[in-house]
Amino acid sequence: MATLTEQNTFELFPHVADIGIRGQGQTMEKAFEMAAMALTSVVTDPQNVSPTIHVRIHLEEKDPELLFLDWINSVIYEMDIKRMLFSVYEVSIKSGVLEAQIKGETVDLHKHDPAVDIKGATLTELKVIDLNGQWLAQCVVDV
């Protein structure tokens, strides 16, 4: 599960027109989870999102960067279609098969003060890298 630690972190990085999301973790799964937390933070503070509703995501793609692109786009799709925000991400990846459970709640204007809709993940700054045992997953999202 995505828990912030010294090793598992997320951040936004600047892009003039849009926003970059970056997750780092001890495994590729953790980096994917953290990047999704960064995605939520584009819209609102993830700490304000209660993990009450569960959604499952299943993806298959052997290329780690394309798998990451598909992962972020799947979360964006679920956010949009269900009018939800998510704060808990649990990802497992085995041989190019990603299984995830994500948890969140319906958007509440007063509670979440949601900044902006996310249109999609771009290939800009798309990276999934193992930096000597510390994984990084990132891309720019169009808002």
Partner: peptide, 16 residues
């Protein structure tokens, strides 16, 4: 809106 965003997402990946 969401339709255009998803068409862009789908075809950007397919074209890649």
């Amino acid at each position: 809106r969401g339709l255009g965003h998803q068409i862009g997402t789908d075809y950007l990946r397919d074209m890649l």
